[in-house]
Simulated scan of single mutants.
Amino acid sequence: MDQLLTLNNGVTMPAIGLGVFQSPPEETAAAVETALGLGYRHIDTAAGYGNEREVGEGIRRSGVDRDDVFIETKVWVSDYGRDETLHAFDKSATKLGVEHIDLLILHQPMPQHFERTVAAYEALEQLLTDGKVRAIGVSNFMPHHLTALRAETEVVPAVNQVELHPYFTQRAVQEADSSLGVLTQAWSPIGGITFYPGWGEERTSVLEDPTIREIAGAHGRTPAQVMLRWHIQQARSVIPKSTNPDRIAQNFDVHDFELAPDELVSIDDLDRGVRGGPDPDAVDPSSWDLEIPEA
């Protein structure tokens, strides 16, 4: 049984979710169905991933009751703005085949056009008030983005989903989240961004790190399981992605062992302070050629 995390508005969310970033649409439904059959009850997707429809299909195929599945998705920047974001909810809900979404978050802070980000978040607040979403949040927000958002909006984000793995622990972000009562959620929790094809020339897989491998050997676990356990013991949400049934199962099988305090510190100390994904302050995502189609 997965551990539950309580968000700042009292809503509970399973600690482990299946991520579907870069999962091909034709493989996504099967991956979701497999995950739910194994006991997952949290699925993370995004309008920008282009596979919300297949996530909904996988949930229906699983036979698991909709109300037992925590569905998280993201609004892409092309749909930022109050009216645009309200419509973005409609598009996502229709593709997912649901009436409400459990957690709806903004995909990027987009500081280059922050007035649109604020308007989009105000739409999320309205959706929360209207009962169309159970919780709202943000993704890739750095501490100064959170401060700017809090100055202009009412509801504290429930979640901040950021790149976070042993080579990039984002301690300042974690501290800012904690000070506000925001749950930190890790994308790329096992360091996939450090070895994804096309993400830079010099890639070093966290899965191959000697410290991680030593700890994994001591517990009879895989390096991925050790990293996921590291996150969970430090009260973070994780959304490991895979379409491989064996890896989907392994990523969920992390509740029956515990890392020692010195092992947690050893993993913390692997931080290199080097971001693998795009820097939200340096890259304007509205310049990317990505528009979200109608449902």
Rank of each mutant, 00 (worst) to 15 (best):
L5F: 15
V11N: 04
V11C: 04
A15Q: 03
G17S: 01
G19W: 00
G19P: 00
Q22L: 13
A30L: 03
A30Y: 12
G37E: 13
L38R: 14
Y40L: 03
A46Q: 05
G48L: 10
E54S: 08
R60M: 10
S62L: 12
G63W: 15
G63P: 06
D67G: 14
K74T: 02
K74H: 05
V77F: 06
V77N: 03
D79E: 08
D79A: 07
G81Q: 01
T85Q: 06
T85S: 09
L86E: 01
L86V: 01
F89L: 00
D90V: 15
G97N: 12
G97W: 13
E99T: 11
H100W: 13
I105Q: 09
L106H: 01
P109C: 10
P111N: 10
Q112T: 15
F114E: 02
F114G: 03
E122G: 05
A123G: 03
A123D: 00
L124R: 03
E125S: 11
L127Q: 00
T129Y: 15
T129L: 14
K132S: 06
A135L: 05
V138P: 01
P143H: 12
H145D: 15
V156S: 09
V159I: 01
Q161Y: 01
H165P: 07
Y167G: 15
Q174V: 14
E175P: 04
E175F: 14
A176G: 09
V182D: 03
T184P: 00
A186I: 03
S188G: 05
G191S: 11
P197L: 03
G198D: 07
E202H: 14
V206S: 06
E208F: 09
P210A: 08
R213N: 14
I215T: 10
G217C: 06
G217A: 07
P223Q: 04
Q225T: 09
Q225W: 08
V226D: 09
M227D: 07
M227T: 03
M227H: 04
H231G: 03
Q233T: 12
Q234A: 10
Q234P: 12
A235L: 08
R236M: 08
R236N: 09
P240Y: 04
S242W: 02
D246H: 07
A249T: 14
Q250G: 04
N251S: 02
F252T: 12
F257D: 06
E258Q: 12
L259D: 05
L264F: 06
V265P: 13
S266K: 13
D269V: 08
G277Q: 09
P278V: 11
P280T: 07
D281K: 04
S287W: 03
W288H: 08
W288E: 13
P293C: 07
E294P: 00
A295R: 12
